[in-house]
Design a protein around this nucleic acid. Structure first.
Lengths: 230, 230
DNA sequence: TCAAAAGTGTTCTCCCTACACCCATGG
DNA sequence: CCATGGGTGTAGGGAGAACACTTTTGA
């Protein structure tokens, strides 16, 4: 049972995938962490992930682990960096291919493996296992850069959202504040939004228009080559 | 001699690094390729690269291979994607961590291993080994995105260059044409250039001012958060 | 004297920015 | 009636885009 049946002429590192999963709660960016049930780093929080199967691509592996450990479906998934420090895992040399995933946060959480999964706001991250703090830093940087070229923000929002929600998301990702009126003007002018006939009462004060993301228009604009600046 | 001494409980993929090396010849972007001397794909062209040692990070491995196979020193090196298709190498499962390197093209070529190395303009790339055509496509895309945030172009030029050279480089990378006057105005206004007292005769027609990249100013501006748009 | 390359300035337009008022509602 | 949040318009400034003339030199 402890046999080692896979032999090579030269040493091979192990390869895993890890998923940094972002969700937006309406106010802040959150990441989904899983409490490790086994050593090393038992009891610490870590990103969902695991060993890559020999017959799957890294992205397939990342999606599989995401599904197995959190039961979430990602709106968006993208490889962003591979971490290869020889000592990043105490067991053996493990290289991890890290993915960034965006999900609509209201979808349920909780994985098949009964592992404890929990959302943490970005400014209240507990101590993480392995080099996952480094991975998180790289992931947030990457997300920040991404949003300049691609309207990834919409993957973090529900299908229907208010301008205020959209603005708070952009502010959370970029760490800046926008003028309410200018933000609305720019967004509406971009034609990426479809104004719906529906409204909601986000506060007890006054109803607000709902919008949805116009993917058709986005694909059309992307074809022509455009950038949404912030 | 054919023994397999490195054994694991679970199968492990092999891991390599590959370097897509860009150089600029004054007119066009070029990439450095090496002719493979062994099977598989013997005789085809490929990026320099090789197996990762167990005690080095991927970036160290990439730099080592770069040095061994081409004897070049990169001005800039950055990991951009990891390729993991299970069938991308016919020998065994090999995952490759790919790097983008920028060098000043006039530095000599030719590696230690006596392998044939040669610059190819981007529009005259021969048939490549493995999935290296895919890797090249990803690399050029990445370079194009990078240049929006970072003045990486300067790493591709000699220390002293003319505005015309700089413009041709940007045009080559982005695949667009700029108005000569507007390009000069924007570049000079950015304060990233230092005008030197020297001039050259790039053509037999008239002398041109030489410039150098003002790295101090760049770091200063980056601190304050700025973007050079194109 | 002509062709080719380098240097330079102006105008127009558009977008981003700063900023203020009105409306609807619940307490 | 007032506090809160949502919706909308305008004036000013700055940067990019379009565009032309002059100078230098070799042929």
């Amino acid at each position: 049972m402890d046999e080692k049946n896979y032999c090579y002429k030269y040493p091979h590192p192990a390869v895993t995938t890890d998923c940094v999963i972002f969700g937006f709660d309406g106010m802040r960016l959150n990441v989904l962490l899983i409490e490790r049930g086994i050593e090393p780093y038992k009891g610490r929080w870590a990103f969902p992930g695991g060993f890559l199967n020999m017959d799957e691509t890294a992205e397939e592996g990342a999606r599989r682990e995401l599904k197995e450990e959190t039961n979430l479906t990602a709106e968006y998934i993208e490889q962003f960096h591979t971490f290869s420090d020889p000592d990043r895992d105490p067991r053996e040399r493990i290289i991890t291919i890290a993915y960034l995933a965006l999900v609509k946060l209201q979808t349920v959480e909780g994985g098949d493996d009964a592992a404890k999964a929990q959302w943490f706001p970005l400014d209240k991250i507990p101590q993480l296992a392995f080099d996952h703090d480094l991975i998180l830093r790289k992931a947030t940087e990457h997300l920040r850069e991404r949003i300049h070229f691609q309207p990834v923000g919409f993957d973090l929002l529900p299908e229907k959202f208010t301008l205020k929600q959209l603005q708070m998301l952009y502010e959370a990702i970029l760490g800046v504040r926008f003028d309410r009126r200018n933000f609305a003007k720019k967004m509406l002018h971009s034609e990426l939004l479809t104004q719906l006939d529906e409204t909601v009462w986000p506060t007890p004060k006054r109803e607000a228009n709902l919008f949805s993301f116009n993917k058709t228009k986005y694909d059309e604009l992307k074809q022509k080559g455009f950038r949404l600046e912030f």
